[in-house]
Design a binder for these strands. Structure first.
Length: 287
DNA sequence: CGGATTTGACCCGCGC
DNA sequence: GCGCGGGTCAAATCCG
């Protein structure tokens, strides 16, 4: 894993996506924060060229060392989406499919004469090599497990090095959905909860178990009261975001969902801004 | 009783 | 090769 104190700037720069944020955002994603994110496999840096710009690495690199050009939801439902992330390190073989275990075949075949194992064990081994796009949110909140409309089952917790706070691991309770999330508190600011999502939801069931049901396109249900987090990725969120990044590859201002501060969850007008407007506040959009 | 959580053990990748 | 740290598993436990 990356050394939080020494983010590897020698990475293939083309794999990075530069994001221009407001000064406020830049302040939020301060240096320490980027260090934390790098712990997640994200690399977030201030750009020397653009003091208020940040860069993040969506960490699409699989543990095989291959940088995929296309990452596809592992869900088999019709809601599965494909997202493309360009990279100059175009490896035609580095494309995962939406089949059950996209990297299973390629990685398994790459194994050198594996010792006799039970099929189950073999499968587990292959599955672990899959790394899906990740997306991190930072939210100022008292509660660790933020409501995002999906139901999560905790499957692990680990102490984090150099942090007094443990990191919790959650999986989407939908058996067909492989989305995972990690939740931890910032060691620098305990009031900040860092939530990292991995993968894409293949279902639209967005229900608050303790507060009624929402639809993915009903941000008004995310009433800005109490300490509710911002609307988090809906089933199409990653697609939209990454498409945005892709589209803007040669154009300015790709956008990140703005980290929220206490009592200021991000709610925008979807009727004006469309799907992305569910997530990205007006203040972050350039005219 | 079924589902969710806890927690120690285990596996794997990576750096030295 | 070894140790470390991250990530996952799965049995035990908890809880509604």
């Amino acid at each position: 894993m990356n050394d939080p104190d020494n983010p590897d700037l020698s990475n293939d720069d083309s794999a990075w996506r530069e994001l221009t944020l407001t000064a406020q955002d830049s302040d939020f994603f301060d240096r320490d924060t980027s260090n934390i994110l790098s712990d997640f496999g994200w690399n977030l840096h201030h750009s020397s060229d653009h003091p208020h710009s940040l860069r993040f690495d969506s960490d699409l690199t699989q543990t095989t060392g291959v940088k995929p050009t296309t990452v596809t939801s592992s869900c088999s439902s019709s809601a599965a989406v494909s997202v493309a992330v360009t990279s100059t390190n175009n490896n035609p073989s580095a494309t995962s499919s939406s089949s059950e275990d996209p990297a299973e075949n390629s990685t398994a075949s790459a194994e050198k004469t594996p010792p006799p194992e039970t099929p189950v064990k073999e499968k587990k081994k292959a599955q672990k090599r899959i790394r899906q796009p990740r997306f991190a949110f930072m939210t100022k909140s008292d509660v660790d497990n933020l409501e995002d409309g999906y139901r999560w089952r905790k499957y692990g917790q680990k102490a984090v090095k150099n942090s007094p706070f443990p990191r919790s691991y959650y999986r989407c309770t939908n058996s067909r959905c492989t989305v995972k999330k990690r939740v931890e508190r910032s060691s620098d600011d305990p009031s900040i909860v860092i939530t990292t999502y991995e993968g894409q939801h293949c279902h639209q069931t967005i229900g608050f178990p303790r507060g009624g049901i929402l639809t993915a396109h009903d941000p008004h249900s995310f009433t800005p009261h109490h300490h509710l987090p911002p609307p988090l990725p809906n089933p199409y969120y990653y697609q939209e975001l990454l498409h945005q990044l892709h589209r803007d590859n040669n154009a300015p201002t790709p956008r990140l969902p703005r980290p929220t501060t206490e009592d200021t969850p991000v709610v925008s007008n979807p009727t004006e801004e469309g799907l992305l407007g569910d997530i990205v506040p007006q203040t972050m959009r350039n005219p």
